[in-house]
Design a protein around this nucleic acid. Structure first.
Length: 638
RNA sequence: GCUCACGUAGCUCAGUAGGUAGAGCGCAUCCUUGGUAAGGAUGAGGUCACCGGUUCAAUCCCGGUCGUGAGCUCCA
């Protein structure tokens, strides 16, 4: 008598099937689209192979490429195909690891010779062959000793490493496709033929297990999709990202430059300064309204201060030093100590708190040369910093206000964002209790406000936990910009106090926070977000007047003059060229408005308005155009 | 910092199997006065990243330095 078990499917239906039935048999029974598209199954919340045998009553659902779990299985299986191809072509290559990642997968190899881009093409061809062979992925389990011997015999010392690190009771499984066998927890696709469209993308070095003490392996990145059209779409997205690269646009639009004479120290050109000043103006407006005072503190301060703040012990590797009259000084990597000193210059009553001190502070940090990246990752940058000195009872309320302000400002630019909470790092100061209290305070704010958030264990600042804002740009990439950090350490180190209701000295808490993060990075993100086509309020050049021929120069000059008087950033293109040529130039420079003036406009005292995206808007009087553009600037329309 | 690749005119890039270089765009001058994404002609512009080595001769080969890119690690 065969025992029957119950399977609860996603639609709520229950099936009775003989024990030991494979999930694929149920799938075949279900038929329909799912039968073609299912990649793996989830049994009681665990992702398994389609060949998995059911032994007890379970909840079962199938996953396709639409599901994250499905994508992961798909890409992970493709990484095995990559490894199999590399092993065929380069038998001496040793295997590292090969996981699925966002948008694709990678596999690390230790090969005596380094791979070249030509090798990548060969490997891709071999992968296609393996896919064509439609080799089944087969799971097998091994005892620990057996697995160690198996991989040791094949010279796979990295795999041996991995097995050694597995917990005693772990099930050690391997998957094979054809002659290729890899240590792997799985699950995998039914066979290599399931993979339709593949592309190897790049080649890079990566330390074994992410530690610079270990040997460097060669990492091959790639991606795969169940349809060629999806792969093409993804590759087009990569192209689009390349077109938006702020380093490329920064050059083309003459916004900034980075020179050999100052790696990581950006030069901001006149066009870039216009954007930056607009950002600062907007920032000051919002901060004034939110009750902040603005300060400015020195860039170079005495060593003693940095010892007191803890930076000397916890941040020295990232700091620059100098000597003045034989005394040691440091260039500030953060603005907080300066703010602490200003707080200490006078007595504060509990009635004065919260005190919100904002500073657009230029900081310098020695980042590793290999991490520098345009204006995203630099060695000197201006933080839109603020330090809020609060009574312990005001902490949560102030953190909420900071989140509100951040939300307001990000909305202006059209960014969506998500939050991450970072907890105590290794090299940090203060007692566990203090960290506990601070971390809980931040967590409570997040929970009370109902914000979903991710926790980054051990990723906080050395003086306190933090909430980071990761904003999402117009093509779905995320960037860390804003952060709110709660700090009980600096007030302690600097012996800050306020006089309480009881006439006694009490310790305030400090909230460190930035909204843009750094003006440099924020500008870079903006450039990529808008693909260089800035909203009118930010556009370095808002209007170009285009006279049709020399006859119209005088009228064009009048128009320019009127717009200039109204505060519009306007220029005319006086060059001896045809209209189409001048329009193309303005279009390429992404100027929001072009005003064409010729005989007709001269006669009617009007301008023909062309908008960079919408095209020809027809003719306007100068006054009407001014009303329109000024309204757009005022509302910061996007 | 580490691995690999790269560094030629303001920009984007070609090139020389070792004999000191070329295109397009841009710029200048001239012709053209033209109505919504490139009119034509002429010209200027480079110690081929820097320093050393090999060679009769190096932009090219070799070594080093600096810088850039893709990643690793790290972060606003």
């Amino acid at each position: 008598m065969i025992r029957l078990i119950k399977v609860l499917l996603r639609d709520g239906a229950t099936r009775e099937i003989p024990v030991g039935t494979r999930v694929i048999d149920i799938l075949n029974d279900l038929g329909g689209r799912l039968k073609k598209e299912a990649l793996a199954a989830v049994v009681n919340g665990v992702v398994v192979d389609l060949t998995y045998r059911l032994e007890e009553d379970v909840e079962l659902r199938f996953v396709t490429f639409e599901d994250e779990e499905g994508k992961d299985v798909y890409r992970h299986s493709t990484s095995h195909i990559l490894a199999a191809a590399v092993k065929r072509l380069y038998p001496k290559a040793k295997l590292g690891i090969g996981p699925a990642i966002k948008d694709g997968f990678y596999y690390d190899f230790d090969n005596p010779d380094s791979f070249t881009p030509e090798d990548l093409e060969k490997i891709e061809e071999e992968m296609k062959r393996i896919i064509k062979e439609d080799l089944p992925f087969e799971r097998s389990e091994m005892a620990r000793e057996e697995a160690l011997a198996f991989f040791a015999e094949r010279g796979e010392n990295y795999k041996v490493d991995l097995i050694r690190e597995l917990p005693e009771d772990a099930v050690i499984s391997c998957y094979s496709c054809g002659e290729f066998v890899d240590l792997c927890a799985g699950p995998h696709l039914i066979s290599t033929g399931k993979v339709k469209a593949i592309k190897l993308l790049s080649l890079a070095g990566a330390y074994w297990r992410g530690s610079e003490k270990n040997p460097m392996l060669q990492r091959i990145y790639g991606t795969s999709f169940p349809k060629k059209s999806l792969l093409d779409e993804y590759l087009a997205k990569l192209e689009e990202a390349k077109k938006r690269d702020h380093r490329k646009l920064g050059k083309e639009l003459d916004l900034f430059s980075i020179q050999d004479e100052g790696p990581g120290f950006p030069f901001i050109h006149p066009n870039g300064m216009i954007i930056r000043n607009e950002l600062e103006n907007y920032w000051r407006e919002e901060h004034r309204a939110a009750g902040y005072d603005e300060i400015k503190t020195p860039i170079i301060l005495n060593r003693v201060l940095w010892e007191q703040s803890g930076h000397w012990d916890h941040y020295k590797d990232n700091m620059y030093f100098t000597k003045i009259d034989d005394l040691d000084y440091a260039v500030k990597p953060m603005n907080c100590p300066g703010s602490m000193l200003i707080y200490k210059t006078k007595m504060h009553s509990y009635r004065d708190l919260p005190i919100r001190m904002a500073e657009l502070g230029l900081v310098h940090r020695h980042e590793l040369s290999g991490t520098l990246h345009g204006m995203m990752r630099v060695r000197s940058f201006t933080q839109d910093d603020a330090h809020i000195f609060v009574l312990p009872s005001q902490i949560k309320d102030e953190v909420k206000k900071v989140i509100d302000l951040t939300e307001r400002m990000y909305k202006t630019f059209g960014f969506e964002y998500h939050l991450e909470l970072s907890t105590r790092p290794e090299n940090s100061m203060g007692s566990d209790e203090m960290w506990e209290i601070a971390t809980n305070a931040l967590r409570e704010v997040l929970e009370e406000r109902g914000f979903p958030y991710v926790v980054n264990e051990g990723d906080g600042a050395f003086y306190g936990p933090k909430i980071d804002f990761h904003l999402t740009d117009s093509i779905g990439r995320t960037w860390q910009c804003g952060t709110v950090q709660l700090d009980f350490q600096m007030p302690e180190k600097f012996e800050l106090f306020y006089v309480g209701e009881d006439g006694q000295k009490h310790r305030p808490a400090v909230i460190h926070r930035v909204i843009y993060g750094s003006l440099e990075r924020f500008m870079a993100v903006l450039i990529e977000h808008f693909a260089g086509a800035f909203p009118v309020w930010l556009a370095p050049k808002q209007v170009v007047v285009i006279p049709i021929s020399a006859k119209h120069h005088q009228y064009a000059a009048e128009v320019v003059e009127r717009l200039k008087e109204a505060g519009i950033r306007v220029e005319a293109d006086w060059r001896n060229e045809k209209v189409g040529y001048k329009i193309r130039e303005a279009q390429v420079q992404k100027v929001p408005y072009m005003l064409v003036v010729g005989d007709k406009e001269l006669e009617e005292r009007k301008v023909s308005v062309r908008e960079r995206k919408a095209g020809d808007l027809g003719s306007f009087s100068v006054a009407d155009f001014l009303t329109k553009i000024q309204a757009e600037i005022k509302s910061k329309a996007r």
